[in-house]
Design a protein around this nucleic acid. Structure first.
Lengths: 146, 146
DNA sequence: GACCTAATTGAGAATATTTCTCAATTAGAA
DNA sequence: TTCTAATTGAGAAATATTCTCAATTAGGTC
């Protein structure tokens, strides 16, 4: 299990863990790897299934714990689909948002944040200060529109 | 229970039900009423509790069914809080979005849609067509910032 | 108003999702 | 290599959601 996950993403995660005083376990590295290898948002069970290909004895609770921690660290983004089910993906490096193609489930990043400009306006108009925002776009990607 | 819910919101809902071939039941009207009377997003259980003040025998499944139907009809907006719990509120009339104050839970509408302008840009840049979007803002309202 | 029918409801069972508990294991520091 | 605290796996427990079905009810028709 040592050499399995060693590309830059995994190295970065390891550094992050060390800085935070967290241990770098095979289960955690496998979750990173699985999310990085997928173009889709993955559900908890999809992640568990994929991780089990490497580490068959992995338990569901570990996946829940790991993802919670990764979201906390900002490594992973949690998405709430309209029907209520939750899925996860690696957070983009820059502040960007993601679109999901509802035909093929592919995730596409776009670097512009439509909320950024809003902050000032809202502050003036309503006195509201945005601390956190949450944007999700659903539609059809180029390939599926053909 | 007849005269309880008779302001314009309730009248509008009744018309909508009739148009859609749906029955106007006391339970459904109570849900509308409860959501309209609240400045907050309400969870399923909060809604159930409030509805029970009028109709003590109301069952949980009815609340689930009613809200699902209302979301379908566009009467109600379902919100996915970052921690995963679901809450509901009456949909704004115009296309607008909502901010939630994380201190006092109050919901504030703002009429601008930050996504609207994005559509063309994305179509050109990425060939992606947005069909559906989902924006949630969390922050602090004027009163709570003082 | 009484009758009829299909839609709706309530109650609880069934299922799905998420969290908790704790003994056993393990990563990483010394 | 040893030690210790963090992490894990397994299953139980707690929550959340959906399903089932007999009983009730809204709303149309006479």
């Amino acid at each position: 299990m040592k050499e399995k996950f060693s590309c830059s993403h995994e190295q970065n995660a390891k550094k992050l863990f060390r800085n935070e005083g967290l241990k770098s376990t095979p289960q955690r590295m496998a979750v990173i790897h699985v999310l990085h290898s997928s173009e889709k948002y993955l559900s908890i069970n999809e992640i568990l299934d994929s991780v089990k290909e490497f580490l068959p004895k992995t338990g569901l609770a570990t996946i829940y714990r790991t993802l919670e921690m990764f979201v906390e660290l900002g490594l992973v983004t949690r998405v709430h689909f309209p029907d209520g089910c939750h899925s996860y993906t690696i957070s983009p490096k820059d502040h960007s948002h993601q679109m999901v193609c509802t035909k093929c489930d592919t995730v596409i990043n776009f670097p512009d944040c439509p909320i950024e400009g809003l902050n000032e306006t809202l502050m003036k108009q309503k006195g509201f200060k945005i601390n956190n925002h949450f944007v999700q776009l659903f539609g059809e990607c180029e390939d599926c529109r053909i």
